[in-house]
Design a protein around this nucleic acid. Structure first.
Lengths: 262, 262
DNA sequence: CGCGGTCTTGAGCGCCCTCAATCGACGTGG
DNA sequence: CCACGTCGATTGAGGGCGCTCAAGACCGCG
């Protein structure tokens, strides 16, 4: 599992910390390419904006699995995930946990207008590599015209996250266990595809069943049995951190995926 | 039920449409006072800003219970609720419904930065009186310094709504039926108090059990039985559209109310 | 008075939960 | 190299919470 989320970054040679990226001519030039891929799904960025992001790789840092991204509970300073998965979550006094959002490479935290989401605890689920985007946040808050597209792209990303929250509510409130899992997997496929991490409905999925259960409001045991059913029905395979959706048609029908209000 | 949400407005004489409010000297000066009360919980507004809102009452309109606020499915133009309750909801193809948000007097729709919430269908649960705030939206989008406080107040309101969404997720994902109901009632009490509609934990509550069930992800039958338990235990009374929280201490303990992450 | 909507109640059951034990993979230390 | 601990996945057993179906009661309204 550990090998999986680093795999996407591994072709990038490790260089001395603090040195500016050598901007190779090749396609995967810098570790922040994931972010750019994500943000440019909305609209092209200018060279200035791209450079702004590229230069952030100076502020690279690593968070081990299980550690909070921010200092314990407090709001998380602006970050951009480069590799690894994290989540936003809340824990009830008796230990029950609910996960609000999964964060994947290319996602940002605490960058846009402060939302209630930025007040919940953010925890790394795998080893996470990210950059501190405080500088970027300060630059963007000036609302310079030259960064308008970047601001728009970030707003779109926030909007997408909010949309996922609404889907999440429907899943939790009105869908059965299998519907939830199917819907959740399809959503993650779409998000991972935007990040360039999913091809042919195959994708890295470095989550324990406990995490998935806490996201979907299920018990570990029941999630396990539900997954087994879905495997038996040849809907998915999920092994050693790799998820394959075998029959997306059926999954979409099963989960009412994409059926937003009429 | 129908008599209830109008009750709050009934002391206000119906006057010819389009005429400016006569601004009586008495306590409830203008129909938009609810909004101001809500918005000024964050910080005082300037006279200019207050006037901006007051003048909106020209654009008063009424939506009967059951009707969508926007034209069927499409995004709702900017509105401010003066009286009555509405909700944001999504319906699955097979008829299952999930309610995301309840909208009460003083709430705004479609005013701030466009969020995913503005794309979901918004339906009146009772007869709703509201104002069309299109003019206001246009004025505010200019980001004039003189309206900074108003913009800030609206941002805070949006943030609060988002926070409620997160609480909603925890309820749906990790709480039992009784916990959900208790938590939901406490949340509504706090919101209604901000709108000046709740005193001594007694408040108007013009919702059918079906609506509450669809908000809390429960079946009508089970919600009914849960309510009966809570009444028997002297936690609440709920009759003819009036809700009383009899033992808020116990309710808060029961629901883990306010227990945001440590 | 009849009618539709809402609330209530009963019966039965199934989804999903809890508790508990086992298994397998992996890393560590002896 | 093996014993052992840990973590995650799996399996079994049993039960309860919440569901569906179905009727009836209540109530405001035309």
């Amino acid at each position: 599992m550990e090998s999986l989320e680093t795999r996407d970054l591994s072709p990038m040679p490790r260089r001395s910390f603090g040195a500016p990226p050598p901007t190779t001519r090749l396609r995967p030039p810098s570790p922040v390419s994931v972010v750019l891929r994500r943000l440019e799904k909305v609209g092209t960025l200018s060279d200035v904006e791209r450079g702004l992001i590229e230069r952030l790789s100076i502020y690279r840092e690593t968070v081990p699995a299980g550690r909070s991204l921010g200092r314990a509970g407090g709001p998380v300073g602006p970050r951009i995930l480069l590799s690894g998965w994290a989540c936003r979550q809340r824990t009830l006094p008796d230990g029950r946990r609910q996960i609000f959002t999964l964060l994947i490479p290319g996602d940002t935290v605490g960058l846009g207008a402060d939302s209630a989401l930025e007040d919940v605890s953010t925890v790394a689920l795998t080893r996470v590599e990210c950059v501190d985007a405080l500088v970027l946040k300060e630059i963007l808050s000036a609302h310079d015209e030259r960064h308008a597209r970047l601001n728009r792209a970030l707003a779109a990303a926030r909007r997408q996250e909010e949309s996922c929250l609404l889907d999440h509510i429907v899943r939790l409130g009105r869908q059965s266990a299998m519907e939830r899992v199917a819907h959740f997997f399809l959503e993650m496929r779409d998000r991972l595809r935007l990040a360039g991490l999913c091809e042919n409905d195959r994708m890295p999925f470095p989550l324990t069943q406990e995490v998935i259960a806490d996201a979907l409001g299920l018990s570990i045991v029941h999630l396990n049995r539900t997954l087994q059913l879905m495997k038996r029905d040849r809907l998915i395979t999920l092994k050693s951190g790799l998820l394959s959706l075998l029959d997306t048609r059926q999954l979409e029908a099963l989960a009412d995926y994409g059926c937003h209000d009429a």
